[in-house]
Each structure stands twice: as structure tokens, then as C-alpha cells.
Design a protein around this nucleic acid. Structure first.
Length: 270
DNA sequence: GTCCAGGGAGCAG
DNA sequence: CTGCTCCATGGA
């Protein structure tokens, strides 16, 4: 007997598959999510979410089903460039995902792709995590990871980063990251092995709720050059500065729409 | 076989 | 500070 939640203007499959969150499994219209120590089942019927394994408050936070997100999207619609892109992806939202899970996930993301990241986290959980119901959680923060086991999760050269960063991720540091402002969190994250400016921005955006975070990967850089004056956007840092000046604290949401558009149009972009 | 993927670390200039 | 190479690995 699933619980229900009205979520007008939300697109569950679009959001889940948009490269923010990796620990989901699809079966027809049903999605199984393993996050925050829980196993959640959820599906969407029209504007309604039918779910089990958690409460409404948790799901609203996870999918950011809050008025502020809609207001930010409305503000972005006033941008003449974005107003042509956003309507293609109605219902796409920037999530608010567990911090430790997001850190491990995006360490795996470097020079990889979304299906492989999902496989890495699935294997890492199964080989080295803790069981909940019939599924597996990622190893806990602070836990000493075995490099050989992390390598068996096919994480490649990222294994040493996962081992060392997980050792450094004490409760104290996680709390620090969660309470600091954007520049402080970004700087602290960049001190961790395997985390540079781009991955730090992904964590700031998808977990810490810093709206001004603007991760620039190869897709975003190509798309920005195509959509805006390509001359000034010579590197990632300049594309990020351009975005933050143009969209302020809505930049992160803008990024997610541009990312989705860039993936769809990648063959047409240079 | 070759190329690319939600990059970062290390190093040369 | 900017630009280059190397790092494992799966999939196209």
C-alpha cells in the first residue's frame, strides 16, 4: 500500500536519469532507490508519486519538490537562450542527495560515463558495503576501505582516491561541509584526493544545495560555446564565471538544463 | 583497433 | 596561471 505525494510539474524518470544520482534501479515504471540508509520504491502516475520505504518529507527534500525550485526555473525562463531549452525538459529538477554518497559517486565520475559510474557504485556497495533489506549501501564514511576490493569494483585509477578520501571523511568534516558557505565548501572539497573544481561543484550543487555551483564538463563547455559567444569561453573557469554572473544562484539549475540539452544535441555540437 | 566518457594530479613552460 | 600527459576501464 504505497504512500502518495502530489508533485505537479515533476518528471521522475527525467530527473533520476539526468546524471546527478546513480543508485537507482529501474523495473518498468518502478524505480528502486538505495540512499540515506533506505530502500525506496517510487513511480510516477501523471502528477502523482506513489512511493514506499520513506516519508513524504524525505522525498520532497530528495527531489527538491519545493516552491523555491519552481521560482528559480521561472526566473531562468526570462533568459532568451534558456527559454528555448527549458521547455524541452519540463520537470527536470536539481536533487538534494546524501553528501557522502555524492562524494563517492563523483570521484568515480572522472573520465567516465553515467552507466559505468552506476556499475562502480553497485559493485562497491555489494563488495564492501552494508546490507539493508535485500540491497546494499555504500561503505560508511570514515571506514577503512580495502584497495584491492575497491579495485574489484572496476574503479581503475580512482581506487586510491576513494580509499584515501573515505578515510578522511569524518563525521566532523561532513558536518563542516554541510554548514559552510559555497566558497568554503568548495575549497574544503578540493583538498580531498580525487576531487578538483568540477567534481567539487557537482557535490556543492547536487548535495549541498549551493545554487551558484556550476560544474563545467566537456558537454557543458561545448554547449556554452555553441549557445553563447564562443570567443570568451576558452576554458572551464571562464564558462563558470560567465554562468555565475549571468544567472547568480540559479546557475546550478541552468547548468542541469544545459547539460541535458548538450547530451541530446552532442552529435550536432562540435 | 580506436576513440570517448559529468577529471584530477603532476609537471613543464 | 595555462596547457599537456597519464591514469583504468567499459562501451560505441
Amino acid at each position: 500500500m504505497p504512500l502518495q505525494l502530489e508533485a505537479p510539474g515533476f518528471d521522475l524518470p527525467l530527473t533520476l536519469t539526468s546524471g546527478q544520482f546513480f543508485r537507482y534501479y529501474q523495473d518498468e515504471d518502478n524505480y528502486l532507490l538505495v540512499t540515506d540508509g533506505r530502500v525506496i520504491t517510487v513511480r510516477q502516475e501523471r502528477s502523482k508519486l506513489l512511493f514506499d520505504g520513506t516519508d513524504e518529507q524525505h522525498l520532497r527534500r530528495l527531489f527538491q519538490l519545493v516552491p523555491e525550485h519552481d521560482l528559480a526555473t521561472q526566473r531562468l525562463m526570462k533568459d532568451p537562450v534558456l527559454s528555448a531549452i527549458i521547455p524541452r525538459y519540463t520537470g527536470l529538477r536539481v536533487m538534494r542527495i546524501n553528501l557522502h554518497e555524492t562524494i563517492l559517486g563523483f570521484i568515480c565520475s572522472s573520465a567516465s560515463n553515467i552507466p559505468k559510474i552506476r556499475m562502480n557504485l553497485h559493485l562497491l556497495s555489494q563488495l564492501h558495503g552494508t546490507q539493508v533489506q535485500e540491497h546494499w549501501l555504500l561503505p560508511a564514511p570514515g571506514k577503512a576501505l580495502d584497495h584491492a576490493i575497491v579495485t574489484k569494483a572496476k574503479t581503475g585509477y580512482r581506487a586510491k582516491y576513494l580509499v584515501e578520501t573515505n578515510r578522511l571523511l569524518t563525521r566532523k568534516l561532513l558536518t563542516q561541509l554541510q554548514t559552510a558557505d559555497y566558497p568554503t565548501s568548495h575549497a574544503l572539497l578540493c583538498e580531498l584526493p580525487g576531487i578538483g573544481p568540477k567534481i567539487a561543484d557537482c557535490i556543492c550543487l547536487f548535495s549541498l544545495g549551493h545554487g551558484e555551483a556550476f560544474p563545467v564538463d566537456v558537454h557543458i563547455l561545448r554547449a556554452m560555446r555553441h549557445l553563447f559567444s564562443r570567443a570568451r569561453l576558452t576554458n572551464e573557469a571562464r564558462a563558470k564565471a560567465f554562468a555565475q554572473k549571468r544567472w547568480g544562484k540559479d546557475a546550478g539549475i541552468a547548468q542541469q538544463f544545459i547539460f541535458q540539452w548538450a547530451r541530446d544535441e552532442r552529435s550536432r555540437l562540435i
